[in-house]
Write a protein that binds this DNA or RNA. Sequence first.
DNA 1: GGATAACCGAGACGGTACGTCCGGTCTTACC
DNA 2: GGTAAGACCGGACGTACCGTCTCGGTTATCC
Lengths: 194, 194, 194, 194
Amino acid sequence: MPPPRSEAARRAILTAALDLVEEANYEKLSIEGIAARAGVGKQTIYRWWPSKGAVLLDALLALSEDQAGTLVPLPDTGDLEADLKLVMRATVAELDDPRYDRPMRALTAALLHDEALAADYAERLEAPITQIKLDRLRSAQAAGELRADVELDVAVDLIWGPVMSRWLQRTGSLTPAFADAVVASALSGLRRAG
Amino acid sequence: MPPPRSEAARRAILTAALDLVEEANYEKLSIEGIAARAGVGKQTIYRWWPSKGAVLLDALLALSEDQAGTLVPLPDTGDLEADLKLVMRATVAELDDPRYDRPMRALTAALLHDEALAADYAERLEAPITQIKLDRLRSAQAAGELRADVELDVAVDLIWGPVMSRWLQRTGSLTPAFADAVVASALSGLRRAG
Amino acid sequence: MPPPRSEAARRAILTAALDLVEEANYEKLSIEGIAARAGVGKQTIYRWWPSKGAVLLDALLALSEDQAGTLVPLPDTGDLEADLKLVMRATVAELDDPRYDRPMRALTAALLHDEALAADYAERLEAPITQIKLDRLRSAQAAGELRADVELDVAVDLIWGPVMSRWLQRTGSLTPAFADAVVASALSGLRRAG
Amino acid sequence: MPPPRSEAARRAILTAALDLVEEANYEKLSIEGIAARAGVGKQTIYRWWPSKGAVLLDALLALSEDQAGTLVPLPDTGDLEADLKLVMRATVAELDDPRYDRPMRALTAALLHDEALAADYAERLEAPITQIKLDRLRSAQAAGELRADVELDVAVDLIWGPVMSRWLQRTGSLTPAFADAVVASALSGLRRAG
DNA sequence: GGATAACCGAGACGGTACGTCCGGTCTTACC
DNA sequence: GGTAAGACCGGACGTACCGTCTCGGTTATCC
């Protein structure tokens, strides 16, 4: 039989982690601090997570699931550019919201020096999201909105990479206009002959 | 008159930092470790740098300057796509080389939770590089290789963002083919009407 | 009706405690370790004993009773000095035997900071032993081998104290010769006028 | 050159250790507690002492030296019994004083499961004290107050052992009368033929 | 011949302390 | 006065146990 595992403790830990990472930066985030804030023994964290990065990953997963239950596919009105602009504006807004920005940035930092965590992240958070992006693009390709020879995984990077890059490196501000421009330009390149 | 400042110590510190970050990951990199490896007192580090991230930034700057003395402009043969493919293949190769990948990744992690360092990085490492990118694009725009209404800073993100994003998130492998595809697609979107 | 109380568990716990204290020192002895070694839940120990010192006390009591069933009186041949030398040589031998030395030393350490346990020890282990010592001395006093004004409880300390003290403080080696010398000297002082 | 070593920290640590051991029992005494009370980092304790028992030993040594500067010889009026009764009454009084009793008992517990500490204790605290006891007895032997064939180290155990034993095991109360009785009886056995 | 109650093993839980590492400040001796 | 060395206070690390608790599962009387 599986161990009883306290659901209350689990939730308290994930909430505490998110709260703390929002208040300070990732460097200041400590297992000790999470345990104290959650009213939990440190061992309870170490029993279930290998590192604070893993706690953060679970916390972000919980955050995604809390609001949606399950991941929703991208809108498909038949107009790829319009659909993606809508999605990209939402993404850009989310990345500007500290509620997401802080923990996401913290998790990204953790991924940079923890390959095991990166693998876990890729499988559990990124893969499903990439899948729904690929699904939408495949549909568009079938409808002739993308050239037939476009490699869809490259297309995903072309469309979302510029936004991610600007977010991570704070190269510029993430405005709806930027979102639109990126989608328009990227799609333009993917539509007709290179 | 500035104090004599031991150049030997400075170099030893930067070298030690690079060596250590190459051996382990950024988390394990410690001021104490750098000092010990460099045969230097901790105070000597604290006297000249505010954080280990700052040491890393200087170390990377030194690395750039060691090989080039000064930053070279991007090639300008008149064929933007060919020039950028050349550059992008080199970039991709560099990002695959542990000698650059390790410290760059470590520095990126440091930037994520140190805004002061991020500002310093933006000014000293990124700005000059972005400048030479903008210079090349401006030249191309003048030559009619890019539409006149293209905002060049967005163009920079469109061209280099996909590569940076794939590197940071390890979303896929960084091959020369990928470099070519990204350049081709991005430029295709920037050349004609959106 | 009292619950059945598993005799097997009880014995496993006492044996495990003795084994562990013999292998390591008292500091390393842990309830958790005893439970694991005995193949027993921790709660089973906490249900029946208030502390690991109490377990140790029971373990030593069991050890005493295993070999003798009940405590035997000291020999009484009519020659007090000869009888006591015999007893003291046995005592000294026992204190040199790790099988007794280790747990006894551990128990002594526990007694030093647990007054409740000390009271329990005094009543259940020490009192009976002191009683048979007093019995033998009383018999000797009646036979004129000890002065009539000798206080017997002081006499017990005079005779056994030096050995206990040397054992506890490892002041010197516990040889049969030392046992003899102590008995001879102590009795010499208790026999005739002070 | 030797490291500078903060004398203030050293004293604060020893004082804190004594204070804490007086307030609670040895089990509750923790390095963490000492450090907190002394306003000192834990590392400063670990840097100079291998265990809390070692701290306690140094604290007690400091206590002995504070009051006397150096160890004073036992009184030698020519009347061994009178001199020893005086000394023993003082010893008994000291052992009844919580200021000495608590840390001494704590140290004794530590000695029981730390052989290295026991060796250190034997050399630095016990040996000098035993030496002055032996000196006094040797002087008495030379004056004919003790038989010539008495082994002085055994004599020390015979005289002080009963008191130590009663103290450690709380077998009875430590009164001046008990002190006198022990000295009288022990010397009686050491004076004339066994 | 179930019911039921205390036992049992296992082990998760909130905690405390461990002994170590490192951060950032300071002091000392050398050059 | 900068430097190598390293002690200092503080705080987090990850581990070991503490003593309490909650689980199912066995007994083993008692109705």
